[in-house]
């Protein structure tokens, strides 16, 4: 019973949340100084976190392991504190004021979930391509064919726009045609195809980036919830003061 009370008090406590935030700050500070000193981190964005972290020495990843642990406990703490807050204050008249911090917490949990999913299943592949190049985009037999590369320059020679026409082919048949533009990637079969870089000379070449980001949708949902919650909270506080 004493142990149960101890666990209950630990997880349902704001004090725990504050300590966890302090520990995450200390860990992040350590990471901010470790990261620029080790070249290994330069490939982290192109490999799923949980795959990368297992291949690296503990002396450079300890802070990430610690942070993952802290965030896991913080997620449980956030969830339980939110549930308790809703149950204990369910009879209050200002329902929106009660629920808006919990919407913020829900947004935070979705963002954590997004990072977890991306950490497990994200992938990134780069491929240089010119007109007529074919790039395999998945384990199956679908290939991406670059049909046309257009770049336009201003009078001073600065690149001011570009577009890349592509076709998705399977067994020689065209499945889909698309045009990649700045901030308008081509999305197909869970992949996101962007142009990372372009080179006009000696012939037009693009550096294609083929990403799979399974957490993106959850991050967006989390972001929307967080935004809704915090804006509601601020508006309610302003109205209360008036």
């Amino acid at each position: 019973m004493i142990l149960f009370n101890y666990i209950y008090n630990f997880f349902f406590s704001l004090r725990t949340a504050l300590w966890l935030l302090v520990f995450s700050l200390i860990t992040l500070f350590a990471g901010a100084f470790i990261m620029p000193l080790h070249e290994e981190f330069q490939v982290l964005h192109s490999t799923p976190l949980f795959e990368w972290i297992q291949d690296q020495p503990l002396k450079i990843t300890w802070w990430l392991w610690t942070l993952i642990g802290i965030l896991a406990v913080l997620a449980v703490n956030t969830l339980l504190c939110s549930i308790e807050s809703i149950i204990s204050k369910r009879k209050v008249t200002q329902w929106l004021l009660l629920i808006s911090p919990q919407i913020i917490h829900a947004g935070f949990l979705f963002i954590l979930l997004a990072h977890l999913l991306s950490g497990i299943g994200a992938s990134q592949k780069m491929a240089a391509a010119s007109e007529g190049s074919m790039v395999q985009i998945s384990g199956e037999n679908t290939v991406l064919s670059v049909k046309e590369i257009n770049m336009s320059f201003d009078s001073r020679g600065y690149l001011n726009d570009w577009d890349v026409s592509v076709e998705y082919l399977s067994d020689g048949n065209v499945l889909h045609r698309d045009i990649i533009r700045p901030n308008q990637p081509s999305t197909r079969m869970g992949f996101n195809i962007n142009v990372k870089d372009l080179r006009p000379y000696p012939r037009e070449v693009v550096l294609l980036q083929i990403n799979r980001e399974p957490g993106a949708m959850w991050a967006l949902i989390g972001g929307i919830l967080f935004t809704l919650g915090i804006i509601t909270l601020i508006l309610l506080k302003i109205r209360m003061e008036r």
Partner: peptide, 10 residues
């Protein structure tokens, strides 16, 4: 995400 296909680039 729209520019580089990922929302987090470490």
């Amino acid at each position: 995400y729209l520019a580089w296909g990922t929302y987090w680039i470490w």
